[in-house]
Design a protein around this nucleic acid. Structure first.
Lengths: 157, 157
DNA sequence: CGCAATTAGTTTCATTTGAAACTATATTCC
DNA sequence: GGAATATAGTTTCAAATGAAACTAATTGCG
């Protein structure tokens, strides 16, 4: 029999979901970030902005924020430095004076076209730890957890 | 037939591993952090230090850094504020004058004993999106990816 | 032993980050 | 039409963060 004194559960960090996610996420992100940071001087927020604009042009800053899960301040600052480097350009929306439409410049596009294969390659190196079936599983499980996390907290940070 | 002009792959952020991990990690961590931050004024680094000390007492700051994947500066600062709040205490190592042995105080232990069930509960709420078999799979897949990430980059940030 | 090289931990300083306030435009509704 | 409210995006200011320098103690090695 156990003593009757309350005994708190012990927490094994190595098994604790938020901790595991955080360590894995940091390792993967920073390995990839190192590549585009070294070669193009891009920060993670800058690359994220470029990544969505590479897929869809003429988004507003707010659209970008939504799609990258960044907040509007981060987007504003990333856009500012990308514009200084002539990698992103913006023009006023035709109907709404508050909105600026953002797009990659040709210079930005050229970088995008170089970074994407690099990023996909690195992703594949990580995923090479899994076989095809395991990748499929992982993909599905991440989807379920992401949906769940979205339903609950909602917030990104 | 495709045109012969080079056409870069497109990157779908929603499918891109680092992005997915980062968003999920942020959502999960911050949902849990909100709990212990609101109730106990603990930051994430502070809670991580308490989490390892709750499992094993008399660790050095370096041990804590290793087990939490934090760097020594972060640990030093978290320990400083935890000591100010009398949640952690330290005493010099008997043989090595450079080392301080860290432990939870009874006040710290009481908080640990409250936060652990809370954290485990929240973790379970997230994981309730998966059935038993899926959890087992996810656990195994995270393990493989963590090992892979460790082999490659090595770095945590 | 005694001096060079390591290791533990802290401090400093510059950069990054986030919350809140702010500006400017759009929309709502009386 | 015009006051009140909401939205897009920027700025400001304080706090968090990280890299590198620093202090103090230890270990390795001639």
């Amino acid at each position: 029999m156990r003593s009757s004194a309350a005994q708190a559960a012990r927490l094994d960090l190595d098994r604790f979901l938020p901790y595991r996610l955080s360590v894995l996420s940091n390792r993967v992100s920073s390995a990839i970030a190192r590549q585009y940071s070294d070669r193009f001087g891009l920060s993670i927020p800058e690359w994220r902005v470029m990544a969505v604009l590479g897929g869809t042009a003429d988004l507003s800053a707010r659209d970008v924020a939504e799609r990258t899960a960044m907040d509007k301040v981060q987007v504003s600052r990333a856009v500012e430095s990308l514009m200084r480097a002539r990698r992103v350009a913006r023009s006023p929306d035709r109907d709404d004076g508050r909105i600026m439409r953002l797009s990659l410049t040709s210079k930005g596009r050229a970088i995008y076209d170089e970074v994407v294969p690099l990023a996909l390659h690195l992703e594949n190196v990580f995923l090479s730890a899994l076989d095809a079936e395991e990748r499929r599983q992982f993909d599905a499980l991440m989807g379920k957890l992401a949906r769940q996390a979205h339903l609950l907290g909602g917030e990104d940070k």
